[in-house]
């Protein structure tokens, strides 16, 4: 198990959010969409210009910009 910021994650990598290190509006918006500690995410892919990133979260797909993904710390599951 290793921790990294969401931005560093690769396509199809899975993990569990451990922290959202951001308050204020951005933090609130991230949490409103279900990105809270304990949530499992999978990287679905990136937009044609590598940004934003699309994630699978609880059955739906969300997109975040890379610089927003920088606030989300994830415990990455080892590749199986």
């Amino acid at each position: 198990m290793s921790r990294m910021m969401l931005r560093q994650m690769k396509k199809n990598q899975r993990g569990t959010i451990v922290a959202v290190k951001q308050g204020g509006e951005l933090g609130r918006r991230i949490r409103d969409m279900g990105l809270v500690p304990g949530t499992e995410i999978t990287i679905r892919g990136r937009a044609p210009l590598y940004d934003p990133v699309a994630l699978r979260v609880m059955g739906s797909v969300l997109t975040l910009r890379n610089n927003e993904a920088d606030f989300i710390e994830v415990e990455v599951q080892p590749e199986t």
């Binding site: 509006e25 951005l26 918006r29 991230i30 409103d32 969409m33 990105l35 934003p52 699309a54 739906s60 797909v61 969300l62 997109t63 975040l64 910009r65 927003e68």
Partner: peptide, 10 residues
């Protein structure tokens, strides 16, 4: 610039 958290509906 501001956050861009968007949902891609099925």
């Amino acid at each position: 610039s501001t956050p861009f958290v968007l949902e891609l509906p099925p």
